[in-house]
């Protein structure tokens, strides 16, 4: 496994060179926070923020995505036939994605690519991306990623791991996959780092992981039955403050629920996949008018049961949370997954 040393000058040059082959995506300052955007020619990703406000999931699962088009015009030979919308999936390199966010997209992939279903929209976008992650040297106070089977230096979802090397703007780039290698070649990175670099990265990783003070445990949740957790008497209290908005679900990198809508424009129309949130009453409203999750606390319970129990039971790959802390920071009512996990784990 190769590790390159990239100084500031080669970084700028390398990005420009790779931009010839890849569409570059990276965090940029948007109004008062960061968001992942396609970078303009010559634009550098802004790697000064810890997290983007919204997770990078929109890269593979956009807020609104046209899936199909149709016509209801009887004179159109394709009348009433759904046609897949024409889309292009350029080769992309996502620069500066955080390791736990990249892991989160892998978790999304479990839902979108399994024995039962393959979602072409998700998969085409996902496969086109080379994930060039940036290790987190100073984790935020709400980061609990190490408890969630990932961490500030996690390599699982990445093709390249960048580590800020200490010197002004220098990086170590650890190549993790062939895809990552191809990107590094396109960027022209070739200066291999010294032999002690692995030890140095390990030491930085240890420091970063130790700096994470926020922890959760779900060992007892694993052993409890679904019904025991579901019927526990704390839910109404736990969920009291929750206003059932979609702040947490939309900020979350692992929430993947969507709603499908048809929109008509005269005799033409589109079928759209939109982000949806289990926090809303409409999410489970039946055609009959019955709603199995009529009360607000039932929807709050659903979110945490799904993340901490149903998903873990279904795939056996841990919980559906990477501990990025976005929901904790952004919740207007202070619904804190760490606290709820603790209550469930009692």
């Amino acid at each position: 496994m190769k590790i390159y040393h990239i100084d500031r000058e080669s970084w700028v040059k390398g990005l420009a060179a790779s931009a010839e082959v890849y569409q570059l995506v990276g965090p940029v300052r948007e109004k008062d926070d960061f968001d992942f955007k396609v970078l303009d020619k010559g634009q550098m990703p802004d790697l000064t923020g810890t997290d983007t406000r919204l997770s990078p999931k929109a890269l593979v699962f956009p807020k609104s995505e046209i899936m199909m088009t149709f016509s209801t015009d009887p004179n159109d030979p394709d009348c009433n036939i759904m046609k897949e919308a024409k889309k292009e999936y350029p080769k992309r390199a996502v620069i500066g994605i955080r390791p736990y966010d990249a892991r989160a997209l892998q978790i999304l992939k479990m839902n979108y690519d399994n024995g039962d279903y393959q979602d072409p929209y998700f998969l085409n976008a996902y496969e086109a991306i080379t994930f060039v992650g940036l290790a987190v040297n100073s984790p935020s106070s709400t980061d609990f990623s190490t408890s969630c089977g990932t961490g500030p230096f996690d390599e699982k979802g990445l093709d390249v791991l960048l580590v800020a090397a200490g010197e002004e703007g220098d990086f170590y780039a650890k190549i993790l996959t062939d895809k990552g290698d191809a990107w590094a070649k396109a960027a022209g990175f070739s200066k291999e780092a010294g032999s002690d670099v692995s030890t140095r990265i390990e030491a930085m990783k240890k420091t970063a992981e130790e700096a994470i003070s926020s922890k959760i445990a779900f060992d007892k949740i694993e052993k409890k039955t679904v019904l025991e957790l579901f019927e526990a008497d704390h839910w109404e209290n736990t969920a009291f403050a929750c206003i059932n908005c979609g702040t947490c679900t939309y900020a979350c990198p692992t929430c993947w629920c969507f709603d499908i809508q048809d929109e008509n424009f005269g005799t033409k129309g589109v079928r759209i996949k939109n982000w949806d949130s289990c926090m809303t009453g409409l999410f489970t409203l039946h055609g009959s008018g019955h709603n199995p999750r009529e009360h607000r606390y039932q929807r709050t319970r659903q979110r945490f049961m799904h993340k901490l129990k149903y998903f873990a039971d279904k795939y056996g790959e841990g919980i559906m949370c990477v501990g990025c802390g976005r929901c904790v920071r952004q919740c207007p009512a202070n619904i804190d997954i760490r606290e709820i996990c603790e209550t469930m784990n009692k």
Binding site: L54, I243, N244, C245, G246, T247, T249, Y250, T280, G281
Partner: peptide, 21 residues
Amino acid sequence: TRCYACKNACPLCYCPTCFVD
């Protein structure tokens, strides 16, 4: 992002079915 935090935080928004639904 249409998360509806603004309407759900609002004490005035209590319609059984909101116009968005």
